[in-house]
Design a protein around this nucleic acid. Sequence first.
DNA 1: CAGTGGTCTAGACCACTGG
DNA 2: CAGTGGTCTAGACCACTGG
Lengths: 219, 219
Amino acid sequence: MTAELLGRAPELSRHRGHPVHAQIERWLMDEITAGRVAAGDRLPGERELAAALHVSRMTLRQALDGLARRGVLIRTPGRSGGAFVAEPRIDCDLTGLAGFTEQMRRAHRRAGAEVLAAHTVDAEPPVAAALRLPTGAPVHEVVRVRSADGTALALERSWLPAEALPGLLTHPLTDRLYELLDERYGLAPHTAVEYLEPVSADPRRGSPHALGVARHRPT
Amino acid sequence: MTAELLGRAPELSRHRGHPVHAQIERWLMDEITAGRVAAGDRLPGERELAAALHVSRMTLRQALDGLARRGVLIRTPGRSGGAFVAEPRIDCDLTGLAGFTEQMRRAHRRAGAEVLAAHTVDAEPPVAAALRLPTGAPVHEVVRVRSADGTALALERSWLPAEALPGLLTHPLTDRLYELLDERYGLAPHTAVEYLEPVSADPRRGSPHALGVARHRPT
DNA sequence: CAGTGGTCTAGACCACTGG
DNA sequence: CAGTGGTCTAGACCACTGG
């Protein structure tokens, strides 16, 4: 039940630097993480909730927009629509934790990602399995460095199903690979080739370790 | 100069399914990608721009919010503040193209990412170079499958500087690795070990291909 | 001081959708 | 039909910041 949510509506302070919509967003987030509002629950209607909080509907919506954007709420219009609390996601903690994604999001004034490599290759078995594709199906492989304000925050390698995303690699990004590596990381082309060429397009030519997720660790 | 931007303000149609704020966002995006507004340029003030478009300031702001959230605009308050066109990012096209990230964002009602592996390891040379860390510095390695509505959309391997993100891997995610692999992808534990154990924490034990970005391709 | 973006109000009409 | 979220209006006051 979320009707009692209205009774728990907090007093909102009107101070500088801590806008009302942010206070509402935080309050709702607390209600959800504390379990007082469960996944699948429907929030009270916007008009009702706004009245309980003594704010205008537009201000409430600013808070709900924030939560919906982060995937915490799912909103649907229509007679029996509303704002529903989303199912918690497995990586929820990872996403929010340590403020990494959050930082990126807030600071994305200077956040960016540089593409080091982008090719279409045949899926190796583990990649194919993870994407539920047949082995050898075409996949786009993209290597990127994610950064914020000039500081490298993560190196990312991704594989995406090529048939579902036909136009993804229209840009000749591969041409820039060596330039980028040389200019930015001071790696000679030889080293670059050594470490950043894509795996063979022919699975039979790939070593069992070609995907880099292989190798036993002594337990 | 962006004063002429006001003269190019489009006629906005009031139809269903294509809200005014989305039309404004598209128009501004077109102006920027076409180069008629350059990186670093300041847009006209919100009040002035809203008047030229014959919309309320709040509606205009809905459009600007969208562009700022995507990092296209940078806004600062104060006397000589304003909305400035951000420097183009290298992966700008990749982000927007093919609607992948956009799809994820809109559909994130059911979007998720499942963690297949998460460990802290010593950075191999290419990872260290990309993150501008010394070789062997501790990095978090995370392997995830990103999906939307149950369809796997990407397999991702990321490395993040561990010292900057101390609490990232507090959860015992590794415990679930084999379960996950077995349940979801029908891989026997043996196969899982074969393909998804992390690389050795000791660089000297790693093969030259341990990072999976190695291997020449016959050109 | 003047102009900026940030916030907030109290309304309105819309398309949609289940009863 | 009634209630939902989505959109839009025409105002208002705020903190901030350079001249």
